[in-house]
Amino acid sequence: MSDFSEAMSVASSGMKAQANRLRHVSENIANVDTPGYRRKTIAFQEAFADSQRTGAVETGKVRLDRAELTRIYDPGNPLSDTSGHYNGSNVNMLIEIADAREAQRSYQANLKMFDQVRQMSSALMDLLRR
């Protein structure tokens, strides 16, 4: 595999991983008011091909955040216990917005890298044609 295609593969794996991360962040935001919902987190890990390091990244297992669920007082809610409380979600919008911004910036950086490699490859082909 040429250096250009390896670099493009690494950049595209980063874009895929960040897109997957952004999908989980958006699910968390969509379920911020869902009772009993636990925030999803995802980790990245290095990808291997034939027991060799590729430099690419892939997403690992999706994990549920084990932080305490918020207790909400609403005696009129059918989910309430005898004290009038029920479990809300453990999604913190501030954290989710920061994670979304970080995923977006990382995606853009990988896209820029992909585009730079494509331009360098194209310029090299133009030089070789002369």
Score class of each variant (00 low, 15 high):
L22M: 14
L22I: 06
R23M: 02
H24I: 00
V25P: 00
S26F: 04
E27Q: 13
N28G: 04
I29F: 09
A30T: 01
N31Y: 06
D33Y: 13
D33M: 14
D33S: 15
T34N: 05
P35V: 03
P35R: 03
P35M: 09
G36K: 01
G36H: 04
G36I: 07
G36P: 05
R38G: 08
R39M: 06
R39E: 05
K40C: 02
T41K: 07
I42R: 03
I42V: 15
A43M: 07
A43S: 13
F44Y: 04
F44M: 05
F44A: 02
Q45G: 03
E46K: 04
A47R: 03
A47T: 00
A47I: 00
A47F: 01
F48S: 03
F48Y: 09
A49P: 00
A49W: 00
D50E: 02
D50Y: 01
S51Y: 07
Q52F: 04
R53E: 12
R53S: 11
T54G: 03
T54L: 05
G55W: 02
G55M: 03
A56H: 00
A56V: 01
V57P: 01
T59Y: 03
G60R: 01
G60Y: 07
G60F: 09
K61M: 05
K61Q: 12
K61N: 10
K61E: 11
V62P: 01
R63M: 13
L64A: 05
L64P: 09
L64I: 06
D65K: 00
R66C: 07
A67M: 10
E68K: 13
E68Y: 09
E68F: 11
L69P: 00
L69N: 02
L69F: 06
L69H: 01
L69T: 00
T70C: 04
T70S: 12
Y73C: 10
D74M: 07
D74R: 00
D74L: 08
D74V: 09
P75W: 09
P75T: 06
P75D: 06
N77R: 13
P78S: 14
L79V: 10
L79P: 08
S80M: 10
S80K: 09
D81N: 15
D81W: 08
T82N: 13
T82D: 12
T82K: 15
S83V: 05
S83E: 15
G84D: 12
G84C: 11
H85F: 15
H85P: 07
Y86L: 11
Y86F: 15
Y86Q: 04
N87W: 12
N87L: 14
N87D: 15
N87I: 04
S89Q: 07
S89L: 10
V91H: 02
V91W: 03
V91R: 02
N92F: 14
M93N: 11
L94H: 10
L94E: 14
L94G: 14
I95G: 05
I95N: 13
E96I: 12
I97Q: 13
D99N: 15
A100Y: 08
A100P: 08
A100Q: 10
E102W: 09
A103G: 14
Q104W: 12
Q104M: 15
R105G: 12
R105N: 14
S106R: 12
Y107K: 05
Q108E: 15
N110L: 08
L111D: 05
L111G: 08
K112S: 14
K112D: 15
